[in-house]
Amino acid sequence: MSHAEPTDVLPAKQARSRATRDALVRAGKKLCEIKDFDDLSVAEIALAAGCSVGSFYSRFADKDGFFRALVGEAAAHDPVPTPPASDPNQPIDDILAEVIAATLAAYRKRRGLIRATIRRSMVEPALWEPSRKRGQEHADRLVARLSLSSPDDPNLEHRVRFACQMLYGTLNNAVLIAPGPLQLDDENLEPELLRAFRRIIIDP
């Protein structure tokens, strides 16, 4: 008597196809750490994934389709910079430092993808929607964490959301046009962001 194939097990051919697709997405994300997505070629992405250009086009209609897959993958799997509240006694300064460090690290790692997303969202606003939702979730979590220490502060939520707007606006600007005086990789950017973030939230 034969046993039925488990429904969550992909047939061999389909499993190989999914593995190739995942390899291409991983390669694209990795390349975007060092290069603008718009400057990447399909051949470069395929080479980094260890597959052929034909394999790329058998899984993605074109480079734009691949871009949307990267954006969706980042939205689904990249961690939100602000974790949920875990220690109600954690000092506020430590929480803010943790948020700034994690957010800046994420921007540095995904700069090429973020830059391309900002540019493309000018003509296709829906592309920025996953980033907007993640930023909102980030702010929601930070409000929840800081409310544990300041439950009676009626203006805390407003200050936190404005501080997050300042943070993301500054980083988006740094990624897109790098106006200075501090660039994205400048070691002084993190303490300056933290100083401004803290000033808005704690010392209004």
Rank of each mutant, 00 (worst) to 15 (best):
P191C: 02
S41Q: 09
V175P: 02
E33M: 06
R132T: 15
N155R: 14
L40V: 07
A12N: 05
L189I: 03
A69M: 07
L167P: 02
G169A: 08
T82N: 04
A15H: 13
R68T: 07
L156M: 07
Q14A: 15
Y168E: 07
A139T: 10
E157S: 14
N155P: 00
R108M: 04
T20L: 05
P130T: 11
Q165W: 10
L31R: 03
V99D: 01
D140W: 10
G112L: 08
A4E: 13
D39M: 05
F197G: 00
D93C: 03
R108Q: 14
I200P: 00
L142F: 07
P181R: 02
A74R: 15
V53P: 01
E73I: 10
L127Y: 06
P11D: 13
S17T: 13
A196V: 12
V42H: 02
R59E: 12
L148Q: 15
E137H: 11
R21P: 04
A174H: 08
R16M: 11
D153N: 15
D152Y: 14
V99R: 00
A106V: 00
H77T: 15
M122E: 09
A75T: 13
R111V: 04
G135D: 07
D203E: 15
S149N: 07
N173V: 10
I177C: 05
C51V: 15
D38A: 09
I201S: 02
V80W: 07
Q165N: 04
T103R: 07
F60S: 06
A163T: 03
R110N: 15
A85R: 12
A85C: 09
A85F: 06
R159Q: 02
G72K: 15
Y168C: 03
V80L: 12
L193R: 00
L148R: 13
G50H: 10
R115T: 04
E190S: 03
S52N: 09
G72R: 14
D203K: 08
A12W: 11
R198H: 10
D94M: 06
H138K: 06
M1T: 09
L176K: 01
K133A: 14
K63P: 05
A74C: 11
V175S: 02
L24W: 07
P151H: 13
S86R: 13
D140P: 08
L70I: 11
L167N: 04
S2E: 07
A178K: 11
A74V: 15
P125E: 06
L176I: 08
D62L: 10
R108L: 06
A76Y: 12
Q90S: 07
D36S: 10
Q14I: 14
L96K: 01
P84C: 10
R110P: 01
K30P: 00
V160E: 01
A69Y: 08
A174P: 01
G135T: 13
R26F: 04
E137V: 14
Q183C: 00
G180M: 04
R108S: 03
A4V: 13
C164H: 02
S17G: 06
A101Q: 04
D152W: 12
G65V: 07
G72V: 09
L148D: 05
S149W: 08
E73M: 09
I114N: 03
P179M: 03
A174E: 06
D185P: 00
D62S: 14
